[in-house]
């Protein structure tokens, strides 16, 4: 299952973001940040202690089931009084949740986490970014491994000269995508596929910010 992978911001940065905001309501998420131990019940309790330690008043806290779900606003309404008393919501979900909450409540929101990437749990407690949603998928030619995402430089014609012993030049704990791709294609007997020269990529398969509206298509079809 895909997950939004987060990391807590340094406490100094959170303090800075909360400067002058004395009363805080804490929101966590029961899905991704619970899984990554960055915004579940235990992390909210630790954050509460930290905040109390620096003289903040925590008016209340809640871990919503799925912070990015549009129902989150409804669920939080039960905490209306505690939220009203606070002058800021400190949100320990990914930025999808933070933005959902910000759009539903007329309240200042501060993210306690940095959203690192949309990833996959590849082992117990291990998460990897395997797709960057570029809009121009080429993994049909690379054995189902994405070089745009898995290669640090996003190279589509083979490895750079920095790869060593199957690892990436920026970190010997990271696999070189092109070694993985080569090994898989060799195993499949399809090395010819990666010998094909790839033209410069279209970096605007979907211009940022991505937008799809299925109802537009339905309307067009109806009009015809």
């Amino acid at each position: 299952m895909i997950r939004s992978i987060t990391q807590q911001k340094p406490l100094e940065e959170i303090d800075e973001l909360l400067k002058g905001l004395g009363r805080v309501f804490l929101i966590g998420c029961g899905t991704c940040t619970t899984l990554t131990h960055t915004g579940g019940e235990p992390e909210l309790s630790t954050m509460r202690e930290n905040l109390t330690g620096v003289g903040k008043l925590v008016t209340g806290q809640v871990v919503v089931p799925v912070a990015c779900d549009n129902l989150t606003g409804e669920i939080i309404k039960d905490y209306g009084g505690q939220i009203d008393q606070a002058n800021v919501l400190l949100v320990m979900s990914c930025a999808f949740g933070v933005q959902t909450i910000a759009s539903q409540l007329k309240k200042m929101v501060v993210p306690a986490l940095n959203t690192m990437f949309i990833g996959k749990e590849t082992g117990m407690g291990r998460f990897n970014e395997i797709c960057t949603q570029c809009g121009t998928c080429i993994i049909g030619e690379t054995g189902g491994i994405c070089p745009v995402t898995s290669c640090h430089k996003g190279l589509v014609n083979g490895p750079c000269g920095g790869t060593d012993k199957g690892k990436c030049e920026i970190d010997s704990n990271r696999d070189c995508a092109w070694t993985l791709i080569y090994n898989r294609m060799k195993e499949l007997g399809r090395l010819d596929s990666i010998k094909k020269f790839q033209k410069p990529r279209n970096h605007h398969g979907e211009p940022m910010p991505g937008r799809v509206d299925l109802t537009e298509k339905t309307q067009e079809a109806t009009a015809k």
Binding site: G158, P159, G161, T163, I181, Y182, K195
Partner: peptide, 23 residues
């Protein structure tokens, strides 16, 4: 262009090398 004859593994490097020459 360049090539690393001592690359480990070498084969993926040579695929790139041949693409550079073909280009």
């Amino acid at each position: 262009a360049i090539v690393t004859p001592g690359a480990d593994p070498l084969e993926p490097q040579l695929i790139k090398f041949e693409k550079k020459i073909e280009a």
